[in-house]
Amino acid sequence: MGARADSQNPPPVRADLRADIRADIRADIRRVGKFFGSRLVLREVSAQVHAGEALLVVGGNGAGKTTLLKIMAGLCRPTAGEIDLRVAPEDCAYLGHATFLYPRLSAAANLTFWARMYGQTPAREELEAVLSRVGLARVIDEPAGTFSRGMAQRLNLARVFLIKPQLVFLDEPGTGLDPASQELLRREIENLKKAGAGVVWVSHHLTADLPHAESVLFLKDAGAAYFGPASGFDGGDLTC
C-alpha cells in the first residue's frame, strides 16, 4: 500500500485544507489516496465531518466524489491514508441513487430485512411510523417493484430513518426525483442533522444543496481544491 503511494510521490497537500480540530468529529479522513489499477483517482484528500453538520462533496464528473464516499463507507479500500469513523458500524447509513430494494418484497418486508441486517427487529407500528413520515403508509404491503422512482427512493429514505444513523453517506440521492420528493429529501436531511447525525453528501446540485451544508469539499483533478466552511466556497470553476 505504502509503496504504491510513494512510487507516485504526490506533491505536498495544500496547507489550508485542514479545518480546525473539534471534539464532535463523526468522521476524519486523513490524506486518503486511491488508485484504480494505475489510475490515480484520489490524492491526499483530508476532511472532517462533524455531528449535526453536512459536508457537501462537489466536483466534476470523474473527480472521485463517489469513490471517496465509498471509501468512507467501507465499500472499497483506500490505497493510502486513513479513515477514522468515530461511530459504530450499526450507526452508519448509506443512501445512494441505487434504492437497495428487493422488488418482489413488500415495503414492510424490505424495511424489516434491512433493519435485521443492522441488528434491529422493528415492530409493525415502527414501520408504519417511518413509512408515514415519507408518505408511503398506504402502500406498506405492496411489493416495492411496483413503486415509481420517487416512491422507491422515499422507501430507501425510510430505511435510513429506521437505522437512526449517527453518520449518513449520501451519493446524489436526489437523482431522478421529482421536485416534491427532492424537497422532502432536503427537509429530512435537515432532520437527520438535528438528530445529531453527521452527513457526507455527494451532490451535483450545488446551488440547491449548498444552503443545507455547513462545509464543502471540492474535488478537482483527483485532489482537494477546497475544504472549508460552506460560506467561504465561491463555487470554484464548477460548471455542472
Binding site: S7, Q8, N9, P10, P11, G37, S38, R39, L40, R43, D221, A222, G223
Partner: peptide, 26 residues
C-alpha cells in the same frame, strides 16, 4: 504493459497536474 498503461492513462502533464510529471519518470 502496466507501466505503459499508466503512462497512457495519466501521462500527459497538463491532464493531471503535478502528479503526472512524477509518474512519467517512474
Amino acid at each position: 504493459e502496466e507501466r505503459a498503461q499508466a503512462l497512457l492513462l495519466h501521462g500527459s502533464p497538463d491532464a493531471q497536474g503535478g502528479q503526472a510529471g512524477q509518474g512519467g519518470q517512474a
